[in-house]
Nucleic acid binder design. Structure first.
Lengths: 104, 104
DNA sequence: TCATTATATGTATTATAAGGAATATTTAAA
DNA sequence: TTTAAATATTCCTTATAATACATATAATGA
């Protein structure tokens, strides 16, 4: 299924093998914001962009008419990254997601 | 050059031929927010998502390693859309952009 | 020029995200 | 189980985005 923005970014973070604390440090935001965002809570665009940059991802607006093409392009490659101790963080998750914080 | 998020969304709006007032009405946010955002100001993620939905675009986080591929995919097609009276709004702009509001 | 449409701003109030720091929970490794 | 690491939450304060108008400023077309 198509992951929401926060799900995708969490997956990205885990794929890079960085903790929320580390992501927060790199982006200059609080660990709290990382958690809030990843759980679907609301954050400001500036906060999102800082986090995105820390995770080396670009936030791109794609017309729905084009999303299909992207799917196939971004899909096919979704391996957690064999870095570090092979099982530090991340392995715990997948993309899992069930929370409460609401958004639009 | 690679347009920033707000530039891209403004271009999208104009390409669809909708005014800020109309975009605001459709998304349920204020025209003020549309203006603020398009000028590079900060807005909440929920506000951005509402606007994006109103403009029928998805906000997708793309790993930098993949952006190149997308470029070629999203590029090549950038025609303002021949809809409406052929010269209602939009024709006035292109993607233009120079403002003051800051962001991250 | 005048009227119209679109976008940028102004003010005041309210809602809420962010900052700071700590703590409670959950998850997994030793 | 004990420890450690990571994530979710809490409290309080402050900054600021969102709301609700109301205008002011363009930019267009008649």
């Amino acid at each position: 299924m198509k992951p929401s923005l926060h799900e995708a970014l969490r997956a990205r973070r885990l794929a890079l093998g960085v903790s929320q604390v580390e992501a927060a440090r790199r982006s200059g935001i609080q660990q709290r914001q990382v958690s809030t965002f990843e759980r679907g809570g609301d954050v400001t665009l500036s906060t999102l962009l800082k986090l995105a940059q820390a995770l080396d991802v670009e936030i791109i607006p794609v017309p729905r008419e084009d999303t299909a093409k992207l799917e196939s392009l971004l899909k096919a490659k979704r391996k957690p990254a064999p870095s570090a101790s092979s099982h530090s963080l991340l392995d715990r998750y997948q993309v899992n997601d069930d929370a409460e914080p609401s958004n639009g």
